[in-house]
Amino acid sequence: MVVLRVNIAALLAAIESWPVSAALRGEMPGTEWLFPIVETLHVMALTVVFGSIAMLDLRLLGIASRNSSVSRLSSEVLPWTWAAWGTAALFGTLMFMAKAGTYAGNLQFRLKFVCMGLAAVNMLIFHLGAFRQVASWDSGEPPVSAKVAGAASLSLWIGVVFFGRWVGFTT
């Protein structure tokens, strides 16, 4: 266990020593604006991630987009969600590299990933459960299990956004 801890600390330090990381910290000539630009692209991508997931969650809760069936709305929205998530993850990784050690030890940063992990588990449960019988409730009122999944997803993603924003204030 001790050995593993040392290795992680060494890995984080190694990441921070990469030239890309130094550039992201604005330490190289002409890179002062790199981090703000990367962060802005991260924000743009995450708004699409959250916005599209919220649409589906609100549909599962029966609050919005009731003129669209759940399966149609998911096939309409989810390709964008995944593309935007990949983009957000890419630019998020770059931001992480700038101060890997600081972020890894930050409470809000860790809580953000706990929320995202739980959101993934919630999505998996929903897909293996209520979504399998989607044909029977596609255009009508979603069953309680689907509503619970929608509420959990919405809350967890709100948590991801909140903790993400708080990382910037605590590091």
């Binding site: 708004t47 699409v48 916005g51 599209s52 919220a54």
Partner: peptide
């Protein structure tokens, strides 16, 4: 920070809808 977090969530709703 709390206000900014809510602001980002609202940006997501507005920009997500505009994109659709």
């Amino acid at each position: 920070p709390t206000s900014q977090s809510i602001h980002i969530i609202a940006v997501s709703i507005v920009f997500g809808s505009a994109c659709m």
